[in-house]
């Protein structure tokens, strides 16, 4: 039968034969669990007993749970502070780093290093830096100069920014590299033309550099937004004794999902939260692609 196929058909058969491996992998590792999670979100299950069908009860519980709304708000604070701050900072660094030649590679490496460091290790070091006297570096320094202590992590208002800061810092290296690649891709001739016309540096920045960086900005915005919406490691490791605390002020959605699933063993409730998070991620990504599309 194989012999009777045309060359084109044979090629297609082989293509599918090879594609089958990643397709099966994706179906088993990605799509099946995703589908299963959606199913569990309509059920009650504590990991031990049978699953019971409870309709939309998990979603109703979510809607009426004040902690969920607090967590929802926190997640967007991480996103709305984290993404713009990290983009502006990394562009600023990349723009200036691109102009220097002296020790360029070394400085770039310094910026990239935090990105390669384990988030867990980093979170624990920052957690230590933030401690009150007598062990916290920041507060010890403040105390040296007679300045009152700042409660970094033990405060409902300061804790979230304090956790966000190392997360932004850690992601910076990657964004700088991508921005520099984008900058290098802009044809030099535009700058030469601008130079001959004698336009100011600001005009060059806003009329040439930034518009031509649009694809880079789109990519980084979507990429870092997804990262901040899924923030977990930093928060969990900096607040392990009271995860997401104090008083839920730093708890992001992923941490709430984790706690519902693996400390409360409410798998259905956790699954309902993952479905909500999935929808949010989808909407935010689509919205960004729409707003930043090429006109």
């Amino acid at each position: 039968m194989y012999k009777r196929l045309s060359i084109r058909q044979k090629q297609i058969t082989w293509a599918w034969a090879f594609l089958a491996i990643p397709v099966i992998f994706y179906v088993v590792i990605r799509f099946y669990p995703t589908g299963n999670a959606m199913l569990i979100s309509f059920q009650e299950w504590n990991l031990l007993g049978d699953r019971a069908w409870i309709g939309l009860a998990n979603y109703a519980k979510l809607w009426n749970d004040p902690v969920f709304w607090q967590v929802f708000r926190n997640t967007f604070v991480y996103l709305l502070l984290g993404t713009p701050i990290s983009l502006v900072l990394s562009f600023f660094v990349a723009y200036h780093l691109d102009k220097i030649r002296f020790m360029h590679g070394f400085i770039r490496m310094l910026y990239f290093l935090p990105f390669m460091t384990s988030a867990v290790a980093m979170a624990w070091v920052w957690r230590w830096l933030y401690q009150p006297v007598p062990i916290g570096l920041f507060n010890n320094t403040l105390a040296e100069f007679g300045i009152p202590q700042i409660d970094f992590l033990r405060s409902t208002t300061n804790a979230l920014p304090a956790i966000l800061a190392p997360a932004v810092w850690a992601g910076l290296g990657f964004q700088i590299i991508i921005f520099m690649a984008g900058l290098r891709a802009i044809p030099q001739s535009y700058y030469e033309a601008a130079h001959i016309d004698g336009v100011s540096k600001w005009t060059v920045l806003f009329e040439i550099t930034i518009p031509l960086l649009r694809p880079t900005v789109v990519f980084l915005t979507v990429f870092s937004s997804i990262g901040f919406l899924r923030i977990f490691d930093q928060v969990y490791n900096m607040t392990t004794n009271d995860p997401g605390g104090p008083l839920n002020s730093t708890k992001p959605m992923v941490l709430m999902i984790y706690q519902s699933a693996f400390t409360d063993f409410e798998m259905g409730y956790a699954a309902a939260q993952t479905v909500v998070l999935f929808v949010i991620l989808l909407l935010v990504s689509l919205l960004q692609l729409y707003l930043l599309r090429d006109r």
Binding site: R154, S155, T156, D242, G245, P246, L247
Partner: peptide, 14 residues
């Protein structure tokens, strides 16, 4: 346990 943690933090922080 979390309820006890929150109790202390409501008094101390809020």
């Amino acid at each position: 346990r979390q309820i006890m943690i929150d109790l202390v933090e409501r008094v101390n922080l809020q």
